[in-house]
């Protein structure tokens, strides 16, 4: 069972992103790194050429590198960019991770990962995706263990990847909610999301933790964590577990997961360590257990 580091969903700036993935590449036992901007094309993210350069550098660590693409493609500029990324990926032999059907379209015929924002809800959908080049699927985050097993049961030639750790990406909108929080229009957002490395908390009127705002994306405030379900995931023969970048101690998070997978530490011990890293904030894992996503079973 492999570990992947998902695409960074927050705006950590060019330098922040590069430094983070270099640390993941050279200081952790992660197997796969997904790089590329998924949330907002306005962010001053790495250009396709810069991403390829970073990918080449990261590859020297021996890890697999995948180029993640935008989750919600709306404009001409965005379509130009995904075409360029798909072409470059093809030239240097990298997979792309499609997160909008636009990327499945431009990447058709080349090796692709269908990311968590592609509606892969049943095995028949996977069959179709395979015909157009998909050989790995990250299922929508809202699916339960039972459902995930059902989807992958008879699918042999597609690798299975499950979102296992991190704030859950729950939805995209055309509207930027971070800009809205500052009464700014999206066209003049002043890149406020750069000030919220784990998203801006959105609490209920009873001051309970609920969601975080991350530009045009809304996420869970609770960190989703399937460490307690590791045995189930192993029994299900899931190929890859995705850990989604959080701002604090991600290298430690990766190594705790890796130790747990290898059986060097138990699930309880791993959970306790992750809890400590998470500042003793509770986790959620309800989706995996056919419950509301925000619950922890």
């Amino acid at each position: 069972m492999k570990i992947s580091i998902g695409p960074c969903l927050f705006d950590w700036g060019k330098q922040g992103i590069s430094d983070f993935y270099k640390r993941m590449a050279f200081e952790t036992e992660a197997d796969i790194l997904y790089i590329g901007e998924v949330v907002c094309s306005k962010r001053l993210h790495l250009s396709p050429q810069e991403l390829i350069k970073l990918a080449e550098e990261l590859k020297s660590s021996g890890k697999e590198i995948v180029l993640s693409m935008l989750g919600l493609v709306m404009t001409e500029e965005e379509q130009v960019e995904i075409r360029q990324m798909a072409q470059l990926a093809k030239e240097v032999g990298l997979h792309i991770e499609a997160n909008d059907m636009a990327s499945i379209g431009v990447g058709e015929g080349q090796p692709m990962v269908a990311g968590p924002h592609i509606c892969s809800y049943n095995p028949e959908t996977l069959d179709f995706l395979e015909e157009v080049g998909v050989d790995r699927v990250v299922l929508p985050v809202e699916l339960s263990a039972k459902y995930i097993s059902g989807i992958f049961r008879d699918v042999k030639s597609i690798e299975s990847e499950v979102f296992a750790y991190g704030r859950l990406p729950l939805t995209f909108s055309a509207r930027c909610y971070t800009a809205r929080a500052f009464n700014l229009p999206k066209v003049n957002c002043q890149y406020k999301c750069g000030d919220y490395p784990d998203g801006m908390p959105m609490h209920t009127q009873e001051n309970k933790q609920f969601l975080v705002i991350n530009g045009i994306e809304t996420m869970s405030e609770l960190v989703y964590n399937l460490i307690g379900d590791l045995k189930t995931l192993q029994d299900m023969n899931i190929d890859i577990l995705r850990l989604s970048p959080q701002s604090k101690n991600m290298a430690d998070v990766v190594n705790i997961w890796k130790s747990a997978i290898k059986g060097k530490i138990g699930r309880k011990e791993a959970l306790a360590k992750l809890l400590e890293i998470n500042g003793n904030d509770p986790f959620c894992n309800g989706y995996f257990h056919e419950r509301p996503g925000l619950e922890f079973i």
Binding site: H117, C119, P140, L168, L170, T171, G286, Y287, P292
Partner: peptide
């Protein structure tokens, strides 16, 4: 592709 409702209701 919106999971807000399922996050709260399942």
């Amino acid at each position: 592709r919106c999971y807000l409702s399922s996050y709260v209701t399942g």
